[in-house]
Design a protein around this nucleic acid. Sequence first.
DNA 1: CATAGCCGCCTTTTT
DNA 2: GGCGGCTATG
Length: 709
Amino acid sequence: MDDTLSRQLTPSQRKAVFHTEGPLLVIAGPGSGKTRVITHRIAALIDSGVRPYNICAITFTNKAAEEMRQRAFTLGASAGAHISTFHSLCVRILRRYADKAGMNANFSIYDQADQLRCIKQAVKDLQLDATNFPPARMLDAISTLKNKLTDAESFKAEAYDFFSRTLAEVYAGYQNLLSRHDSVDFDDLLMKTAVLLRDCPEVCSELSDRFRFVLIDEYQDTNYAQFKIAELLASQHNNICATGDPDQSIYRWRGADIRNIMAFERDWPDATVVKLEENFRSTANILAVADKLISFNSNRKHKRLIATKPPGEDVALTAFEDEREEAETVARQVEELVERGGCLNDIAVFYRVNAQSRALEEALVRARVPYQIVRGIEFYRRKEIRDLLAYLKILVNPSDEIALLRIINTPARGIGKTTVDRVRAYAERANISLFEAVTKSGRIETLPNAAKAKLAVFVNMIGQFAKGAEGEVAALAERVFSDSGLAESLGAAGADGQVALENVSELINGAADYDKLAEQPSLLDYLQQISLFSDADAYDANSECVRLMTLHAAKGLEFENVFIVGVEEGLLPHERSSATENEEELEEERRLFFVGITRAIARLHISYARYRTVRGRGLRTIPSQFLFELGRDVTEQTEEDDYYDDEDQTQEAVPDFSPGQLVRHDAFGLGRVEKFVDMGANSVISVRFNSGQTKSLMLKFANLSIVDI
DNA sequence: CATAGCCGCCTTTTT
DNA sequence: GGCGGCTATG
């Protein structure tokens, strides 16, 4: 590696980069140059004679993988190292060892919508009531089990209560459907790979022998299955390098287990630990805010946040009347930043839930400020895109029943529910796939001749498409689009159809890019790749515009100017997290806010609205408890603000609301204090009412009275 | 069998 | 305020 490059590193960074053998844990705070350390480390390893082929680096998103490849390349590390996400790695492993994993190598990857259809089918097959067994809940529970590598059988063995037993059956039924469809869901990719490595010594030794060095980024967000995969991949050479920051763990709800990083030294007893505590990104003022906030979390590995930059501007906290005013002010401030010579690319707006983007979009459109919503998978959720992709999926994997059902009568070709049901029944009896039954429809006695004829036409059409399945993806997609009748039906659909047509041509353009760039282009590979597309992957640094994204999507990025909007109780922390009286979930929300704050390089604007429209109704909001925790470390802009103006005058003695105290509220009745954040006149109190619900209230509005026993 | 219209559920975050 | 699923109608 170039000497000047290594001289640019701090001593700690250098320690991590040039660590040679044995397990290594890099606890890296925000802005500590972690990405740089990893890429330098890859380059240094190659420099010392390690073949790129023997290196496996695992990132959190495809985007991050792509960036890492680029950067390693510029450092002189020749291509050839395996750099990808866990999921992409799993796809490759499962495809290669499909027979050993008991799978068809042409498997489809089911996304959330596909999974939902399957689980509904499974619930229905068991003749359960969907209201008592909500598909989404079941799916969630199954996902949790898979993340822990618990299969349906072993879960059933330990299921003691009625709900668990039923869940076990749904799980088994769901899994059965997936396997009949030659399909896997996201969790299966991890679970099947982990199980394959665990139970198949040849595969494990082959891969762990190959990967002399295993590097895993964002280790704080790995789940048990990912932990197991990493452990097994590194089992032979013991050269595992994990990097991450427990304070930035924000995917607990998805099975991420912060204990993986907390217990790294226990799992790898001879581990070297390097802490990167210096922050080269943000101003000292921004870091002070971040540090103060995160210090309210109790379950953490203590880590300092050392600023290397001057204080800079104050962090601004602004209260707005409603989300409209909030959004308009953001738009105006964006314009001001640009007038002062700022660049749109350096500005980002973060929010907790996607629905918040609407108000911002409207304001930015009115102000004619170009913006981009970083939400990649949304595109692939559109009906026209899903329809076209379903045709392509059938060509690769005819067992994919979800895809088949989607297109068999789209566009309408006279194959209705009755016909499909009859074919299905036949497939069930003959124990063949639905597609196979469709191809044999001539033999199905229950079908009228008209239906048989229509099915034959459909089968013939698919057969024609299949002939082109080996060629370029874009050309095939184009032909399928026009010959299937999809193009025609969209063309007849007016203005909406025009938008849909544009989307389809965007998809085809993307496919053409794929044809050009992929190492070994194939329809299968293309489909599997886009299945693993993520929101963050949509981030396009080249277009000159403001970026709008959720706080989750912001992870790993940095911007000169950051706006975090809607910092209110119920939103941040989100009600689904704070209402559960679960301190751990509240801490995760705090970490999420921490991640957002630490994305800012120079200027940070935090805001909340006093009223917010939630599902059509304007509701009074309560500022987030996190803001009170920040106290005076943020400067409040109170010019239009009557909310706090009288703060100091109304500083009356606050009665003692300690946890456990019985209180009465005019509307909610009797309750018990759960938590009390004493911030003088702005104190926030959390009360569990006898109705069963827990509410966070601002003391000065709540009008609570203490009940003496 | 196709379509329009209504109802209900939903919405936290995502690989 | 949206989508998907269901139902009634043509």
